[in-house]
Nucleic acid binder design. Sequence first.
RNA 1: GGCGUCAUCGUCUAGGCUGGUUUAGGACGCCGCUCUCUCAAGGCGGAGAUCACGGGUUCAAAUCCCGUUGACGCCA
Length: 501
Amino acid sequence: MNKPTVVRVRFAPSPTGFLHIGGLRTALFNYLFARNNNGKFILRIEDTDRTRYVEGATENLISILNWSGLDYDEGPYLDTHGKIYQKGDYGPYIQSQRIEIYKRYAMELLKKGFAYRCFCSPQRLEEVRKLQLLNKQPPKYDRLCRNLSETESNRRAAIEPYTIRLKVPDEKIVFTDIIRDKVEFDGSLIDDQVLLKSDGYPTYHLANVVDDHLMEITHVIRGEEWLSSTPKHILIYKYLDWQPPQFAHLPLLLNPDRSKLSKRSGDVAVEEYKKEGYLPEALLNYVALLGWSTEDSQQIFTKQELIDKFSLSRCSKSPAIFDKQKLLWMNSEYIRKTDPYKLMEYSIPFFVSYGIKIDINNSEIKEYIVKLIQLEQQKIKLLKDIPYMIEFFLKPDTEIEYKENVVKKYFYLDTQKQILIEVRDMLQTITQFDKTTLEHQLRNFCSNRGYKTTEVFQLLRAAVSGRSEGPGLFDLLFFLGKERVINRINLVIKKFFLNIK
RNA sequence: GGCGUCAUCGUCUAGGCUGGUUUAGGACGCCGCUCUCUCAAGGCGGAGAUCACGGGUUCAAAUCCCGUUGACGCCA
């Protein structure tokens, strides 16, 4: 009886820093594939390369993955105190806690004759490599230790450090990739990969294969940079008598200069996008379109649509450049559709870093901010922009910043002063200080006195906000309130027109 | 250096398997007009791709085949 095969996929990052945009895309595709197939999505931490380990990187990875909304079914999680705990029947999910397992399989390979001990020193390896490069040969281990007799190998193992290498046969290794179809490699050209390092730690290749098997991973969905090492993995499966999973190698994500997306050029840390005020849904939606598309070229997807419509067969093979402009557009699309109350909540940390203190226990001020956000919602591209866009509603009248170009343009003519005085006096008489009344009165004011609306409205805007752009004037005045409006006009008259007759 | 992968507007891509319905479709960006108290958003329109190149198969190729080139990745 075959048990029904449940789709199981994993995202297996190395904790070497922050979660990378490329990593997020890989995680997303795994997530979508799992959810689409009613399968399991697993997080595994591949931290066996101790030289690249960064303190706190695992916690970081988990928390940013959490922020992105890609929930997984098994793996390490963070508790409320930020401590790691693990959940799932296939654990531990952190490779550094599985070292003995890898050792065991390395030994099995050794025993079966599919691997061998290599006693070559790093210095000798380096010399061999140099010589090969000099002769324009591909740098590759010369297999010196491959033919050591068993007794010789055992004898030296007792007294010398050694690594364990895979015996790569001189034959063609062919496999079918879901995205790329048939891929063929010549075994005679592949290096005898080190599986177990002299310190007893496994290399990526061994640990990865062992875990994928033990965790019953059915589909390996990863970046194209792993395509060339796949034949080695296939070999390990074969030698251990295991059924290999199906492979799908995603096209690479590139910098605008067409190099592999890297930390060196541009922002690649998901953390950075969070800090800039991108919504996770927008980031995910954008990244989903890098290497995947629907036939009708749909651009905006809900998460559920993404899950329902996703399929590996619609993934493209060619690499994609990460285009920040389009991401920005998509983010504003999402912000426009987000509930203003949520936007208010999301924007609080951005107010803090902007230097505006908001009393989060004061529901009145929060309501007010929600209204203000609503006024500008169409224009917000990043959450980061919110404080700047509405700060003049929140600052005391005396702290309004008057832009230089505004002062030059609006606060220097005698007629402008006159208009301000007249408008102020007119506004003073309005008892119903609401939008419709304001609009009605201001338009009447203009037509009665023969002023152009643009002239008066922009002048008023400048006087109360210090800017030449912003929300509609009547909204602006209404949400400021009569008292502050009058006060600000007076302040401007005093401050800028004092020297004018 | 070897091996591998890829190749449609500046960018993301549809179409390619099952050749003609494609004067190659959509999205971002760009430009213009419009709406308008401003900035956006919206509406309308525009520019932008000899489908990398060369050869073949065919009445017909972006689509099938072969080769070349380029880009990128991996191996240290």
